[in-house]
Amino acid sequence: MTTDTQMAPAELGESIITIDGLNKWYGQFHVLKDIDLDVKRGERIVICGPSGSGKSTLIRCINRLETHQEGSIVVDGIELTDDTKHINDIRREVGMVFQHFNLFPHLTVLENCTLAPIWVRKTPKREAEELAMQYLERVKIPEQANKYPGQLSGGQQQRVAIARSLCMNPRVMLFDEPTSALDPEMIAEVLDVMVGLAEDGMTMLCVTHEMGFARKVANRVIFMDGGQIVEQNEPEEFFNNPQNDRTQLFLSQILQH
């Protein structure tokens, strides 16, 4: 990508996510090892690393799509436990965007966006629709509101997915490789929306290999390998002066082309 100038540093507030000594296993397989991570309000973090290093698993632990076995995760002052009430309290404050969009194919774009506000936030339908239209406008597809997801391009679908999350007014947004299922010409339109979000001060955790985006937007880049956080730094330092040989290898591989 081009040499974008970096955004102004975010004004960081108090911690919104605190992960302490997190360990997770899939059966015998130790997928996350002693993860410590503190995310401040307004912080924009990019997580990268080779395939299978546990990036998805880590961010899916934050809204408990995955359960962990050791350590603690505190989101917005609430600790994640088996208590379903707490889990749902956290999920409504944490938006998530998936690699494969996961829009609801039997609902229109507008219905996709209003479902959760109406049933989780108890927003009146009319109000929820106005809010949804606002966010659809923001992701630049208000004219598609009454179509079904299957009628949209991949890039449009991912923008709808972002709007759907934003309709819940989340405090944190998690992105799991939001552009890696997209054709090259559609990646930019999704990244543009994400840059816009960052400019507005959204707290973001983003698994991505779009290094241009990382340089431009991130306050901090985290490199994971083998279920561990190997290295983390400000983007400038991270890209120009990687400390760990794994990081160097990884960067040389993805920056080659």
Partner: peptide
């Protein structure tokens, strides 16, 4: 599908 719905707090 259900993961997306869960993530929305449903």
């Amino acid at each position: 599908q259900s993961e997306a719905a869960m993530a929305l707090g449903l």
